[in-house]
């Protein structure tokens, strides 16, 4: 058995340095790698390029890195709900590349799967297509999009084992599985880490081959961005 277990977040993030490109899982604040983000704040690495669907809120998620001006460029599909982000973007301190959400997911998966590029209809005829190769298939226009390249991928899963196998929960899954194995080093943090053999191989969402380092995080905050409830009748 190949073991991927590391002792803690400090060990998991060894090798992280200035000017690197990271992929970070999560949709809104759901399924974000809280512990890796906290460690990046502590390490205070700068000049980062972050590939993540969203950019967190002012005081949580990637917003914490923005507060310390650690991020040079964000590649996202939607970046609302963050005043500091807006300020840095409008002042030109922060470079922002907005891309369609499905394209973002697929550029991760392409990197994971060994495809250098792919054609998608998303964005054809819009400013997203500017400067991109265009090709017609079956009478419909498509644009060429490239696989991402990243140094580290930070993944949040629900359960994992020491072999690096991962199981996700609910919609906290989102981009996390697509980012596994898409960067040079994939770091997975889980709420519960069990010895290899304790997870049913039938239930594994991501096999450990896509993960280089895994550790258990404690006291996940899992903040809710929009609490919506109904009343009992």
């Amino acid at each position: 058995m190949i073991t991927k277990k590391v002792l803690n977040v400090e060990e998991a993030l060894q090798g992280v340095s200035d000017n690197m490109t990271f992929m970070l899982g999560g949709f809104g604040l759901s399924g974000i790698p809280e512990k890796a983000i906290a460690q990046l704040v502590k390490l205070n690495v700068k000049g980062l390029t972050c590939i993540s669907n969203n950019a967190g809120v002012d005081d949580f998620g990637l917003g914490l890195l923005l507060q310390q001006k650690q991020i040079k460029k964000m590649i996202s599909s939607y970046v609302g709900e963050n005043d500091e982000f807006e300020r840095q973007m409008l002042s030109g301190e922060l470079e922002v590349e907005l891309i369609p959400q499905g394209t973002l997911a697929e550029r991760c998966r392409a990197a994971q799967s060994g495809f250098p590029a792919f054609y998608t209809p998303a964005g054809y005829g819009t400013e997203v297509a500017e400067g991109k190769e265009v090709r017609e298939f079956n009478g419909k226009m498509h644009i060429l999009e490239y696989a991402f390249k990243a140094d580290f991928g930070f993944i949040k899963a629900w359960k994992g084992d020491t072999a690096g196998n991962l199981i996700f929960k609910g919609t906290a899954r989102n981009f996390n599985p697509n980012m596994c194995g898409a960067a040079n080093i994939t770091v997975a943090e889980v709420e519960e880490l069990v010895p290899a053999g304790h997870l049913d191989p039938n239930q594994i969402h991501i096999p450990g081959i896509f993960v280089q380092r895994i550790f258990e995080g404690v006291n996940y905050e899992k903040r809710i961005e929009q609490l919506t409830v109904r009343q009992h009748q």
Binding site: G28, S30, T171, I224, Q226, T228, V229
Partner: peptide, 17 residues
């Protein structure tokens, strides 16, 4: 969800529980 039964791991694309 009913109040108290919300799960941060189950949201929609509007980030609502």
């Amino acid at each position: 969800p009913y109040e108290g039964e919300e799960d941060p791991d189950i949201i929609n694309a509007g980030k609502q529980t």
